[in-house]
Write a protein that binds this DNA or RNA. Structure first.
Lengths: 191, 191
DNA sequence: GATCGCATGTAAAGAGTTACATGATTTT
DNA sequence: AAAATCATGTAACTCTTTACATGCGATC
């Protein structure tokens, strides 16, 4: 749905091969939009058909083919068009909330285990998000560095703050969820 | 993925036809888990094959067939098993965050429009969630009323508070998102 | 020479969306 | 008589996941 535009947005920073995009969507980008390799390669060919990206065939060593994709002017126009399109919230599906709705049917100890494990997992993520946020603010992530090269220096701070702010949301939302789990723990135990 | 268990959880309150389940997943339930009619009917037959639900064939009027599904003891065991299973967070995909990440490429006015519309839409939802939360606390929703009939009176308050707490999360998360959009508005405008 | 990273592809299955299709019963 | 609601079904499509499959190049 939004994957084509996610790819366009990444390629706006610098040209990449399918492999590099795959790695990127498995690492940093996965906090905002995940995509496995099997989605990326076919989509790149589709995007090329649409004229939004352009692949340059290269050689790595003597025999290994690689295709480096760049965003085209048409692609950038499309990205900008999509950015101005109203955001439609997708239909909601939250497995934890669904479970919580029925926790009165399970043993309190089981519910407790589920909630505590989730709190721990969130803690992990919060730390990763915070680390990445700090790197963005310091303009130290590899992709942001590339991206800023094509922008006037006076905009650098604003751009990095905007990207960091996205991770700020993830952090705050994670903390809210932890807090909520904590409260749920109390609710499943009181009789 | 979790739809089978969502259905089991609903049927635990009372038996329903596919039509009633469809309506329920289009109304209240959609805030936690959505499902269209075309998913529900085939799934009910699958759940019956698994022995988790049981369909009773009835007649409405003289000619119209209806099948009312109830949860079986096996189904209730399965629901309880699933409740104790650790919650796996699904891969993240947030179209608004994705857009925000690239807002530095669009005209500030376009980004502003997207953010303001989202704030308004969230306001709408927050009001709906709040209304439903109040009804749950007052034990006035039709399904909760049915559900409480099979529970000792001393548990009623705890159960309704647990369900209301789920909507509490939705409300708080919505407000956090509104707040974040507000901050993003400032970020896209400063130069 | 073995291992790891780079690089690209497809196949099959599952989950979810949108649309089409039909007919009975109840309410206005 | 018309409109709304009750009731059930399928078809086609898109998106996503998991798995299988292959081979080159660089490094240890």
């Amino acid at each position: 749905m939004s994957l084509p535009h996610a790819i366009l947005g990444v390629l706006e920073a610098r040209p990449m091969t399918g492999y590099e995009l795959t790695r990127f969507f498995e690492s940093t980008a996965r906090w905002v939009w995940t995509a496995p390799q099997s989605q990326i390669y076919p989509l790149l060919r589709k995007l090329e058909d649409s004229g939004w990206v352009e692949g340059e065939h290269q050689l790595r060593g003597k025999h290994q083919r690689r295709t480096e994709y760049s965003i085209t002017p048409t692609g950038l126009t499309e990205l900008r068009r999509w950015l101005g399109e109203p955001h439609e919230e997708p239909s909601q599906r939250d497995g934890l909330l669904l479970k919580a709705l029925f926790f009165d049917l399970s043993e309190p100890e089981n519910a407790q285990a589920v909630l505590e494990e989730h709190i721990t997992e969130l803690q992990d993520r919060i730390e990763q998000w915070s680390a990445h946020r700090a790197m963005l603010l310091a303009q130290e992530t590899p992709l942001l560095t590339e991206r800023l090269k094509n922008r006037p220096a006076q905009d650098h701070r604003r751009i990095s703050e905007l990207k960091a702010h996205v991770f700020d949301y993830l952090i705050r939302q994670g903390k809210l969820r932890q807090q909520w789990c904590q409260e749920t723990l109390e609710l499943v135990h009181t009789n």
